[in-house]
Write a protein that binds this DNA or RNA. Structure first.
Length: 573
DNA sequence: GCCGTTTTCGGCCCGACTGTTTTCAGTCG
């Protein structure tokens, strides 16, 4: 059991305890313990003095953690699972229903799943319960309908341009003094539920009017003094929440609505240590009655004697417990010197080698690497060893023609279902960069598919593993791969792991990056896997994800000048 | 369940909003 798995058991335990009607503070204690396990800088097994060394872990939760580590199970969890109907946790995802309501519905009406809840509402049995009424019944019905439609979370790559369009429109409004994105969008999470914006204005009414009268608005959900929510359609539907605040409260509101919720909790606890109160309106000193507002977020953090934390770090994944010098000096877009994974018309790309190189030059890259698919990937017109030789000639020609960029010749080679590689060592050693990846037999069991990737990493000619877990966000689960063994072997063999910046992949994801770096010392590469010149733009998402994973410039080989890059990937021993 | 240079007991983050309520509980972000 790794840290993430133990944390997941603790969280599950907290969910069920909550439904069981346990003391909310106890529930919260389990959630805190889960976060502590997940955020621990040292593996649990090497914690001298045991889990109770972690902040928020005491005798009780430590015993549970020990039990999970030793047996892989939790007796408490099994008892709760036994006691509570299977369908109950699902009810938590219905808007407006929380643990208290579900507890009552279950105990008084015997409601155990969504269908029974719907029936109970239709029979008007729910309105008879204490604390419920007619309106609540209607809300529950709406909640069920919404839950079944599941609009789900939007990909960052879709939501970001919408928010940017709205941002520009608001900036053009003379009544708007400042406007910024907030929420998970500003934190650059891989998916977002809605697009949050914060606006500083003296005239909220006029701004609200502008928002609700935009042509893309298909529904006004809420139009109040301080908040406008609209459903817009830009080829896909997304909810946009705009907060309207007085200019002097802009920064505290921006901070509050940027979140995350967990980070905000820690910020408010911190303020309390000084006897202050933090809210979206400012920092309030109950003694003097003074309320502080700010011009920049940096001042807010300084006020709390904290180092400034960029939005990508605000997840309560340890950032609040670090001194300034222990916070990462995050990777910046300017550090990025070249893309090492892309396709051309030789396989399934849309552009030539030269067109890709020219597009890369325009972006100021110092180098790129052409990595078309290998022979076994027939659907993508994979290249044979012979094709590779001819492609190398074309790469050489482009290098002669173009000044200021170096084109490397590589391959994205399939790891075959039986674990063999698609080319012999003799073919591989001719190439500048060898990326290995999986494009078939995704459904293999954990051991088989993990072994497949380990094999590839153990080959001295394989420099990198592309999209190591194979997940497609919202569409396909990761392979059953044991990521910890991948990280461990990557560190041992010097194999570089990819953060694939394709917006559907972002693989490795933020939490993997952080753990692979901190616990295993893995080195990474960020590549777009571009199949066209336009796709180079995705690097922005890759860099944002890397920042969410606490990566610094020195963790990512794409920040190296060419000669040092060559040294780094020359792992043949 | 956890925690303590004001506390080993009595707290545990803040405010808006809604719907159920004559003063508040639950949910949400």
């Amino acid at each position: 059991m790794n840290a993430a798995q133990i944390a997941s058991v603790l969280n599950r335990l907290a969910d069920l305890m909550e439904l069981n009607g346990d003391n909310p503070f106890k529930v919260n204690a389990y959630r805190r313990a889960a976060r502590a396990v997940e955020n621990s800088r040292v593996p649990l097994s090497s914690l001298e003095g045991g889990p109770e060394q972690l902040p928020g872990v005491g005798k009780g939760t430590a015993a549970v953690i020990r039990e999970i580590m030793e047996t892989g199970r939790s007796k408490q969890l099994e008892e709760l699972k036994e006691k509570l109907p299977e369908g109950l946790p699902e009810l938590m995802s219905i808007q407006g229903l929380g643990p208290k309501s579900i507890h009552i519905l279950y105990n008084r009406l015997g409601v155990t799943d969504v269908e029974e809840l719907e029936q109970a509402v239709k029979d008007h049995r729910v309105r008879e319960l204490p604390g419920f009424g007619e309106k609540k019944e209607k809300n529950i019905l709406d909640g069920i309908r919404q839950y079944r439609q599941q609009p789900g979370r939007s990909l960052l790559v879709h939501a970001l341009p919408v928010a940017e369009i709205l941002l520009r429109r608001l900036q053009d409004n003379a009544d708007v003094q400042r406007v910024e994105m907030a929420g998970s969008l500003r934190r650059m999470k891989e998916t977002v539920k809605d697009a949050d914006l914060v606006v500083a204005t003296e005239d909220p009414e006029s701004v609200a009017e502008q928002l609700v009268s935009m042509p893309e608005v298909i529904q006004v959900i809420n139009q109040g003094e301080t908040k406008v929510s609209v459903l817009v359609s830009f080829g896909f539907e997304i909810q946009v929440d705009v907060r309207l605040v007085a200019p002097d409260r802009f920064i505290t509101a921006l901070h509050h609505f940027t979140g995350s919720k967990e980070h905000n909790v820690r910020i408010r606890q911190r303020a309390k240590e000084f006897g202050w109160k933090v809210s979206e309106y400012g920092i309030f000193d109950p003694e003097s009655g003074r309320e502080l507002t700010f011009n920049e977020e940096e001042e807010l953090y300084r006020m709390l004697h904290l180092p400034y934390m960029v939005p990508e770090l605000r997840e309560d994944r340890g950032e609040m417990d670090r001194q300034k010098e222990n916070l990462p000096d995050l990777l910046e877009p300017e550090d990025y010197r070249g893309d090492l994974h892309m396709h051309t018309r030789w396989s399934d790309g849309t552009a030539s080698v030269k067109e890709m190189a020219e597009a890369a030059m325009k972006r100021g890259y110092e180098y790129i690497c052409i990595t078309d698919h290998s022979q076994s990937l027939k659907v993508a017109s994979g290249l044979t060893a012979d094709d590779l030789k001819r492609q190398r000639e074309e790469v050489d020609r482009v290098n002669d023609e173009l000044e200021g960029i170096t084109v490397l010749a590589g391959i994205e080679m399939d790891i075959l279902p039986d674990g063999r590689l698609d080319f012999s060592d003799e073919v591989l050693e001719e190439l500048d960069v060898v990326i290995a990846s999986i494009h078939s037999s995704f459904k293999q069991d954990r051991e088989t598919i993990t072994r497949r990737i380990l094999n590839a990493m153990e080959n001295p000619h394989v420099h990198m593993i592309a999209h190591p877990t194979g997940r497609l966000i919202n569409r396909r689960d990761p392979y059953a791969v044991d990521v910890d063994r991948i990280f461990e072997t990557a560190a041992q063999t010097g194999t570089v792991l990819e953060l694939n910046a394709n917006p559907n992949r972002l693989d490795l994801k933020d939490t993997h990056l952080k753990r692979a770096k901190e616990e295993f010392g893995v080195t990474f590469t960020i590549n777009t896997d571009a199949h066209s010149p336009e796709a180079f733009n995705f690097v922005r998402l890759g860099i944002a994800t890397a920042r969410r994973g606490w990566l610094e410039s020195s963790d990512v080989i794409n920040t190296l000048p060419l000669h040092r890059l060559k040294e780094r990937i020359g792992k043949a021993r």
